[in-house]
Design a protein around this nucleic acid. Structure first.
Lengths: 332, 332
DNA sequence: GTGAAAGCGCTAACAT
DNA sequence: ATGTTAGCGCTTTCAC
């Protein structure tokens, strides 16, 4: 068994079996519009297995002009556990339609997706954020379908949205309903997520105004127990009794700050997070949070891509994605 | 501005500028072995921008026979925050060498990576687990470089390893050193990670044997406070005072179990996790853990891939990756 | 039922 | 300094 340098091509297997490359292609791809005698089919399959043949994606993509890859672009902020739900569902949906999901993470803030999608030449790109108009146009021009998540709930044709403002509203309303009248907001110390943190905070503000409560006391909370403790102290000194946090990570920081000071939720400060992170379920006390239903999100995203793949017409707009309050002991 | 169906190709820009496709290629790729007059260079670049030209990856890959993509295969178990460090570093290292990192997650247990890597035709595949010998061979035969992480610290030529057994050892030694003589092990309720959980537990066993301690009391701990509380009760009833957990997730579950029972670490039970997950830092109390240095891991992985890309000779074996104890209050 | 041939978009000798 | 040409591996129409 000599070491082979050259890639095994369909021509090799054509030669080995004494048929043409066209026939090989038909068999390998199980083309139904072309009848092939059982004998040659078997011979070809055997030779393929024997030689260890592997179709070469780029050549196939070039020839057909259509890739079976879908590129999911992940933003440059940290990936949390929630992403797993999204990926599982997306992968499953796409796979059953013959599409493969690959991901690319924007590592440096402001990095262009360009290098990745150009090299891949995917059928579609799913953007979770971090794709600007210039790039969006370039993709469309290059014939790549673009499906994005928008923040508002409206946007480009193939876009689905989750109104971030609703998240803040849900948080604030829950606290108001359970007797809190002076709220605080735990703002993230991470510039990369302002596109999310601002509208969420705005939702809290609006809810407070609606319900006749005071303006929320906004404090930036680092991922650090001692610094979070300082924030807690400030909130307490200003009469705050309930905190809406940007997400569960920062809610956990508030919990840690309380713990530092020998206090505890919900007695000293009620706190509600967002994302329904598994770590929140195991926190002390378990965290009240907002579930953003990533599976539904994935299904919608997949539907848009698959629709385009099958050449289906205009994507029906199913309206904005829903978020849901999950009550646990940190804000009962 | 009419809608264009056809992809803009280098031929279009050659025609527009009245030069040959070769010249266009030279300019677009900034080939230095070929001198191009400043005038034509400028004209070509202008036309490219004007027409919105985007090089088509698959065609380039086919022509050169070498892809600039590196595929990172993620195992089918949940991705944690730790992955961010790995990705950041890997992405950075590869990008500075002209390589793009893309990821594919094995969504269904037992899913073959095949579909993904065949469609992509990457230069290299980095396997974090879940790639069996059959697939490894197929890749190698297809001319794809394969770099893997092994569990033992030894393995295939282009492999780096972290002895999982060391993690258990570090956990147990720390507890023994701080006065605990009856240890418990929080075993994950997730079959997908047995390849990791077994050797980690084995490390605890070996350390106990070495130090003359009793066999560790192994209990399966679900990610659920109440069920974890039952485990805590059992441990307490069997005289256990210190717990080594499979990872921080399960350590958090133990902490939650303690909290359920009105107990707390480290007084009632000391607990040591693994992974240095940010959620552990914010736990109550902050979690003692093992840092597995994912940045170093990423650098090693990247070095192997980049070495192969540059056609460098045999990869020097830098030995196994080191893990490090991080002491916090859950097991001081 | 099978083969011949053209072509997908790009690169890289080699010629000029 | 620029053009010609021959592929890379695969698909697909059309002819046999």
């Amino acid at each position: 068994v000599a070491v082979r340098n050259r890639r095994v091509t369909s021509a090799d297997i054509a030669q080995a079996t004494g048929v043409s490359r066209a026939t090989v292609s038909y068999v390998i791809n199980g083309v139904t519009t072309q009848s092939i005698s059982e004998a040659t089919r078997a011979r070809i399959l055997a030779a393929a297995a024997d030689l260890g043949y592997t179709p070469y994606g780029p050549a196939k993509t070039l020839a057909t002009g259509k890739s079976s890859l879908v590129l999911l672009v992940l933003p440059d902020w940290p990936i949390g556990y929630g992403i797993n739900l999204l990926l599982d569902e997306l992968e499953k949906q796409l796979a059953t339609n013959g599409l493969s999901l690959v991901m690319h993470r924007l590592a440096r803030p402001g990095e262009r997706v360009a290098d990745a999608w150009k090299a891949i030449g995917p059928f579609a790109v799913i953007g979770l954020g971090g794709i600007d108009d210039v790039e969006a146009q370039a993709m469309t021009r290059a014939g790549v379908e673009l499906v994005t998540m928008t923040l508002s709930g409206t946007g480009a044709p193939a876009a689905i949205g989750r109104p971030q403002i609703e998240i803040g509203r849900l948080q604030a309303r829950h606290l108001a309903r359970t007797g809190h009248s002076v709220l605080g907001y735990a703002f993230p110390d991470d510039d990369r997520v302002v596109a999310y943190s601002e509208p969420r905070l705005e939702g809290v503000r609006l809810a407070c105004a609606d319900l006749g409560l005071a303006e929320p006391v906004v404090l930036t909370v680092p991922q650090d127990a001692e610094k979070a403790a300082m924030a807690v102290r400030q909130w307490k000194s200003r009469g705050v009794t309930g905190i809406c946090a940007y997400n569960d990570q920062f809610a956990l920081a508030v919990l840690a700050g309380l713990y530092e000071l020998g206090m505890r939720a919900p007695d000293d400060l009620a706190v509600v997070g967002c994302d329904n992170d598994p770590a929140g379920r195991l926190a002390a006390p378990p965290l009240t949070t907002i579930d953003i239903n990533l599976e539904q999100t994935a299904r919608r995203l997949a539907a848009l891509v698959i629709g385009a793949y099958k050449g289906q017409p205009a994507p029906q707009n199913d309206g904005p994605l829903a978020s849901r309050l999950v009550v646990r002991r940190s804000a009962p």
